[in-house]
Computed example of a mutant assay.
Amino acid sequence: MDAKTIGQRLIKLRGDKTQEEVANAVNISVSALSMYERGERIPRDNIKIRIASYYKRPIHKIFYP
């Protein structure tokens, strides 16, 4: 699981939405989302679930190669 690859996937999924909009919907801070997208951190499992649910994608398609 490569943090940079996950970050690129998250940016692509976010599309035209703002980081603030996605962070609020997933109930995380904008700075946390930003770190995930830059590949500086990988979200904890409970946050992975919320992100996958928000984007209506299976968890493994976003977070696992």
Rank of each mutant, 00 (worst) to 15 (best):
D2M: 03
D2G: 08
A3S: 13
T5F: 06
Q8P: 00
R9M: 07
R9T: 06
K12F: 12
L13N: 08
L13Y: 11
R14E: 04
R14Y: 09
R14K: 11
R14D: 07
R14Q: 11
G15C: 13
G15F: 11
D16F: 04
D16T: 14
T18W: 00
Q19A: 08
Q19G: 09
Q19E: 12
E20C: 13
E21Q: 14
V22T: 06
V22E: 01
A23S: 13
A23T: 13
N24K: 15
V26D: 01
N27K: 15
N27S: 15
I28R: 11
S29W: 07
S29L: 09
S29A: 01
S31I: 12
S31H: 01
A32H: 08
L33F: 12
L33W: 07
S34A: 04
S34P: 00
M35L: 09
Y36D: 00
Y36L: 04
Y36M: 01
E37T: 11
E37P: 02
R38M: 07
R38G: 00
R38N: 10
E40F: 11
R41C: 03
R41I: 00
R41L: 04
I42N: 05
I42P: 03
I42A: 06
P43N: 04
P43E: 00
D45C: 08
D45G: 14
N46G: 01
N46Y: 15
I47R: 13
I47L: 10
K48N: 02
R50I: 05
R50M: 00
A52Q: 11
A52P: 05
S53T: 15
Y54A: 07
K56L: 07
K56P: 03
R57W: 12
I59Q: 09
I59H: 09
H60C: 15
H60P: 09
K61T: 15
I62C: 03
F63M: 10
F63R: 12
Y64C: 07
P65C: 10
P65K: 12
P65F: 06
